[in-house]
Design a protein around this nucleic acid. Structure first.
Lengths: 188, 188
DNA sequence: GACCTTATAAACCGATCGGTCTATTAGAAA
DNA sequence: TTTCTAATAGACCGATCGGTTTATAAGGTC
């Protein structure tokens, strides 16, 4: 009998993709084992707390990825470069809109109540980090805040519509518009 | 024993609210009976096809509501008035962001595959209707198309973030921004 | 009041749910 | 090579799933 041995980071990434595709309730243990090829034994070995544990670890993993790749550069780095990096990172992470935002999806149904603080802090930090960078790049505080909010809203909305319409181009168009708007505000 | 007698439109509205709160997979029959006070007998009387039937009827109901209240005015009425009506209707329908867009939520997980054509046509018609009104109000075709897309994207994104952040004000702010942007484009 | 259609209640069904448990294997350490 | 721990496989569990069925009550029509 051939057995594949996984390590926890791989398990997190594999299970994450199933939650992304099926949602929290839709991702049954049998679907998770079928799609990831991880047996129940493996899953409960890595995630003793079951589904809720999996989701929590996945969200923490996503959050820390965004912190290092996007939020910290926005918070601490050269603001204009960090903002340009954000557009790039967003486009590649969400695969030009073909990939769902798991944290955004969790926010919509009752799953939100289980993970409300993780969900809230993810989006809050994203908006605040971007607003901070915009301010350091020269925008007045209120304008920076509004523009940051609008960008994160636009990204989430575009992800929803990309899937709803089955349209591979809408996400890129929206990202381009947001980028132009930010650049226009900065040169003004 | 006291029995309450329902009619189908009431049943649709009650079940819709449960799907909205729990999502398609999360809305189990036991949760639906508990929250709506409709027994299984009643539910399968009104919806012989079960959950899938319920969801399909609910989406059709929502769609036809939007057609009469928003899309047809945008398509046939005086464009500026219809657009103003759209902001109002959107704000009140989504209860200033406290209410989830069920069709948008269905688009995110595998539920989309069951109802893909209904989901696609709802958003497609919304964008096209708004783009048409903007064009009739004087905007060039491409600009009207882009602005319409941006408005629907912004509404969906604001709904996601309103729930994610537990913020009752973000939806109104976003709607106001979109409205301003449309008006600015029209007077230009 | 008799009759009939529509709607309701709840017991019941097999299938699947999330989760537990035991036995076994892979692979690093000595 | 022996030993030990981390990882895997899958049978098994009670609870809940979506759905069916039977019996009964509501409420309009005559």
């Amino acid at each position: 009998m051939v057995r594949t041995v996984f390590e926890k980071p791989d398990a997190i990434a594999l299970v994450a993709e199933v939650f992304r595709e099926l949602g929290y309730e839709g991702a049954s243990m049998s679907e998770i084992t079928a799609r990831t090829k991880l047996s129940k034994g493996s899953l409960y070995h890595f995630f003793p707390g079951g589904k809720e544990d999996m989701a929590a670890e996945i969200m923490a993993h996503i959050d820390s990825w965004f912190v290092t790749e996007m939020f910290q550069p926005l918070e601490e780095g050269e603001p204009r470069a960090a903002i340009l990096n954000m557009w790039e990172t967003t486009d590649s992470y969400f695969r030009s809109g073909r990939r769902v935002c798991l944290i955004g999806a969790f926010a919509l149904d009752e799953t939100r109540d289980r993970f409300s603080s993780a969900i809230r802090s993810y989006f809050h930090r994203w908006i605040e980090a971007l607003a901070g960078a915009l301010k350091r790049a020269g925008l007045p505080r209120l304008e920076a805040r509004a523009l940051a909010e609008e960008a994160v809203v636009g990204i989430q909305g575009a992800l929803t519509l990309a899937r709803a319409l089955g349209d591979e181009t809408i996400f890129g168009r929206m990202l381009e518009r947001l980028k132009k708007r930010v650049e226009a505000a900065l040169v003004r």
